[in-house]
């Protein structure tokens, strides 16, 4: 059984008059224990509403969210409060208490949970150590950088040892370097504490850097869902393709339609270990064809998986070309003759 089961989740917002906005339409998905699950979408796609339904900051119009076997709609006010302590949340705007110090902000979570002063003191220093902010304990949020504020947010969210961390665009207002350091921290904490992380973002980079699986959302629908490596390597939905294009511009989609080919235009998709095969070398040496490389890129997913595409114009003797293509089919790679 999945840790989080979302079934038929629908959220409709009433606007003035008869107008309505369908933020979520019949969303179904499962989130497994221990994974980092990413949701990507443009603003207005419904991803924020989605994550807020997971801890019931938003009450769905219909559908169910079952977390760890418990249907959230069946929880009373008090039960919901207890349940929420099992699920930390971090935000794009950090949402720290400006009147409290760093230590005070982290202590807030524990106060709310009714912990004793001595417990709070001990736990706060543990948490600040965990996020690397021990020296900032007495600083106020206004004195911190964005990255430091988010670290406080993370410490606060994890204070009561939740099993799940929800990240609502937590890195969207941070610069790329700080984003990476916050993502690395989330991943590290996930591994150390055995968390399940659900994060929403509009940046593909965030997804490729730490997510195991990704759901692509558009107009309240999940339009594509799968392991990041697969979705990123071989995007199917136009929206997904756009997100992938944002990472590296696609020769195939923009240039191929006009390109005058000498031989055969092939696109090869590499995933995983196959990137170590000396493909181009073999094509020249063994099959006597001329590969003219038009585009090549390699992306690293989660620091240890690679995916790449290579677009080549293969020219030469038709018989040789045929043999080269047969050789390529024998390898464990996805390739497509575009022209």
């Amino acid at each position: 059984m999945a840790l989080i089961e979302v079934r038929g989740l629908t959220k409709t917002f009433d606007l003035k008059g008869p107008d309505q906005v369908e933020a979520l339409v019949e969303v179904n998905l499962d989130i497994e224990v221990g994974e980092i699950f990413g949701v990507i979408g443009l603003s207005g796609a419904g991803k924020s509403t989605f994550i807020r339904c997971l801890n019931r900051l938003e009450v769905p119009t219909s559908g169910t969210v079952v977390v760890d076997g418990r249907d959230l709609s069946g929880l009373g006010r008090e039960e919901l409060r207890g349940f929420r302590r099992n699920m930390g949340m971090i935000f794009q705007a950090f949402n720290l208490l400006s009147s409290r110090t760093v230590a005070g902000n982290v202590a807030f979570s524990l106060e709310v949970a009714g912990k004793s002063q001595s417990e709070i003191k001990k736990r706060v220093s543990e948490l600040l150590d965990m996020v690397g902010l021990v020296d900032k304990a007495k600083a106020y949020p206004a004195q911190l950088s964005g990255g430091q504020k988010q670290r406080v947010g993370i410490a606060r969210a994890l204070a009561n040892n939740p099993k799940i961390l929800l990240s609502d665009e937590a890195t969207s207002s941070l610069d790329p370097q700080t984003t990476s350091s916050i993502l690395a921290l989330i991943e590290d904490l996930k591994n150390r504490l055995g968390l399940t992380v659900i994060l929403i973002t509009h940046e593909m980079k965030v997804i490729t850097e730490i997510c195991d699986r990704v759901a692509v959302m558009e107009s309240g629908h999940v339009v594509e869902l799968g392991p990041v490596l697969e979705v990123f390597s071989n995007p199917k939905h136009p929206t997904t393709k756009k997100f992938v294009d944002a990472v590296h511009s696609s020769y195939e989609r923009f240039m191929v339609p006009e390109f005058k080919v000498k031989g055969k235009l092939v696109r090869i998709l590499f995933m995983g270990d196959i990137t170590t095969e000396p493909l181009v070398y073999n094509l020249i040496k063994r099959f006597n064809v001329e590969p003219n490389i038009l585009q090549a890129n390699l992306d690293v997913i989660k620091k240890n998986q690679t995916t790449g595409t290579l677009i080549m114009d293969l020219s030469g003797d038709p018989a040789d070309l045929e043999k080269a293509l047969t050789y390529m089919s024998s390898l464990n790679l996805v390739f497509e003759v575009l022209k």
């Binding site: 409060r81 949340m89 807030f108």
Partner: peptide
Amino acid sequence: PFGVIEAAQSLGASRWQIVWKVLLPEAK
């Protein structure tokens, strides 16, 4: 900012706690 109140809610704060520990101190 309402986000600060939501953060408190996400941590399981009661309405009473939100008034005493969030709204009033933040608006001091």
